[in-house]
Design a protein around this nucleic acid. Structure first.
Lengths: 236, 236
DNA sequence: TAGATTGTTAATCGATTAACAATC
DNA sequence: TAGATTGTTAATCGATTAACAATC
């Protein structure tokens, strides 16, 4: 009800591009700050300035959400927040498991802010949990042997993989066996899994590579000849 | 010396693309494993299979390094490793500072593997370090007030930013004042800094957005109409 | 030689940027 | 109305994919 002119032009949310999808959380983050500051509308040029983007990029990205703006004014902040959360499926947190409680795993368990990103880590697993330790940062810790049983019982669909590199493939295989459909991979290994299983690899080393090369260019100039002692001997 | 045919065709390392640059650490990681396993040559189709890429992509990427392959055989593993490390400037570790010793900061301090990525965190800083705590995971901890002094004395160029979101811009400003040229930003805030300062933002929420949407599509089908209760009221 | 892979040039695909009419 | 911004269509730019000759 409430006047949908012809039933013909539903918002219908456009096809998204991956880079745009990756920018959505940044909009969400900033819009929440604007909302907290009492702003009702946000114009694309202002959003662009805040997030170091182009105003056309902002408009194209927000088109994905299907929340229209007011010409000459901007986009309604509250509706946009709601729209992005809905689009990303972050309105209700999904419950996930985390495997591997080494350095990174422990840090993620301690990060309180995941609920703002639609995630709730409800249990952690480790191949051999330290004697007597039953929780980390208040999140219950189990031996990995119980992973399958609990995944099935709680119908968990997504898991965070933080084990040692050497155990990555093996752990992922067991996850899939247990019925996990999506894996957030903090390991440096590329996973080989059945098609249909969704994975997202965190590539911190890649970011670092960009940073390293850019800094080197700034310090030593942009011509990057591999090094005097590698010379011209391409082949052989 | 050692026969550079005409002095005319130096490897001269091609212009790189950002996506290719981000893939280089993955090649490096895998090539090191091959080297440890005693392999002398790696062919592009094999590398492609291991890293879930295309063999043409692999060849294009490796062209950047300027280490030629042997037609019909593959690329020399050891030279490639050396070439990638050299290209990325990871042969000798650069010394960096880390600011903010909350959850993520602490995890990074505990991560032993940074030396393989050309990084050595030689000191950590916090606005107010816990009473009596002078080191974390063996890395000395100082109050942030000493950041400038130590940056200048040790000529540090790169810093890792792990403070609370609310302090991100302020901390980054102080880093730049101290002479830092490159910032690896683990904060969710977009930094506004003088041009010429190099930043790389870690966008974990972006990865998570991709994962969330893909999983939702798998579970509920690909048509993502924003939700029945948002209706067609685009404007107003 | 035969088989396999490199390296290069061209074609396709996708994302960003530009231009501008429509709108409040 | 005048000023500003949205939303769309077209043009540019960049990266991936394809095709294939050269090479060991």
């Amino acid at each position: 009800m409430a006047g949908c002119p012809e039933g013909e032009k539903m918002p219908a949310s456009k096809v998204y591009t991956i880079p745009a999808l990756k920018r959505l959380p940044a909009y969400l983050h900033h819009l929440r700050a604007l909302h907290a500051a009492g702003e009702d509308y946000a114009a694309s040029p202002a959003l662009a300035r805040a997030l170091r983007l182009d105003s056309m990029t902002v408009r194209k990205d927000l088109e994905i959400i299907g929340v229209g703006g007011l010409t000459g004014v901007g986009y309604p902040v509250e509706k946009l927040i709601d729209g992005i959360e809905t689009f990303l499926g972050w309105k209700n947190c999904s419950e996930v498991f985390l495997v591997g409680t080494g350095g990174f795993g422990k840090a993620l368990l301690g990060f309180r802010g995941f609920s703002a990103y639609g995630l709730r880590i409800i249990a952690a697993f480790d191949r051999n949990p330290p004697e007597g330790e039953t929780a980390i940062h208040g999140i219950p810790l189990f031996p990995f042997a119980e992973f399958k049983h609990l995944t099935e019982r709680l119908k968990i669909r997504m898991a965070i993989l933080c084990v040692e590199d050497a155990d990555a493939q093996e752990s992922a295989d067991r996850m899939v066996e247990a019925g996990i459909l999506a894996i957030w991979n903090f390991t440096r290994r590329t996973l080989h899994l059945p098609s249909g299983i969704i994975t997202q690899q965190v590539n911190l080393a890649g970011d670092l590579a960009v940073l390293s090369v850019r800094l080197a260019e700034k310090l030593h100039g942009p011509s990057r000849v591999p090094d005097p002692d590698l010379k011209g001997e391409k082949t052989r």
